[in-house]
Amino acid sequence: MLHIASLSLSYRETRVIDDLDLSIKQGESLAIVGPSGAGKSTLLGYIYQQLKQDAALCSQSQGLVDALSVFHNVYMGALARHSSAYNLLNLAWPMAARREEVARLCAELYLEAPLQKTVSSLSGGQRQRVALARALYQEKPTFIGDESFSALDPVMAQRLLSLVKARHETVIMVLHDSELALKHFDRIIGLSEGKLVLDKPASELDGEQLSHFFDTQMATTQDV
């Protein structure tokens, strides 16, 4: 599906990705791990740019519009499916059919907040699920996520990951949780200072081998 050969990327004159080779097959579930500053998000962004016709991105920044309702924030995933006139009308007057679809999706994500509530009043975990819902609502074959479960408890994270996998053919995710990566992904790649230092099927790895790819401090602060 995607072949990357000797890729180098820079951000503000600092080399972030250094001479990286990677290929991703359709139908694969791929976890990207690595300490903070290893270049995970940059790589993920690059992958999304290559695959964006068929992929939905759930980015770390979430991109939620605080002033809009839960419904509108989720609906934004479907902007490309409708005409601009329809989109504008829906902004002023939410369509019943779309409301039903979004409500169903939110229920699957265990998001109990009322649809008309503005996202500015939601908790961190709820906001993350709204962002996730927007990506799912795009209904694309490939899901690209950047620490999409960081604000959720492990049980919830597992449930949602299953949902994501069930709805997408290919899943590519940056993760900060080794257990989740080992248990649910086919293949794990590890980055360190912009270089690909690990690329193995999950079945060949264990928690011990992965431990130095996780900055435990980072993980706890991001849980907040």
Binding site: G63, L79, S83, S84
Partner: peptide, 17 residues
């Protein structure tokens, strides 16, 4: 928000939402 919008979304909708 822009980067999380689906690919192919028209400019007016992207601008408004």
């Amino acid at each position: 928000t822009r980067e999380t919008l689906p690919f192919g979304c028209d400019r007016l909708s992207a601008y408004c939402y």
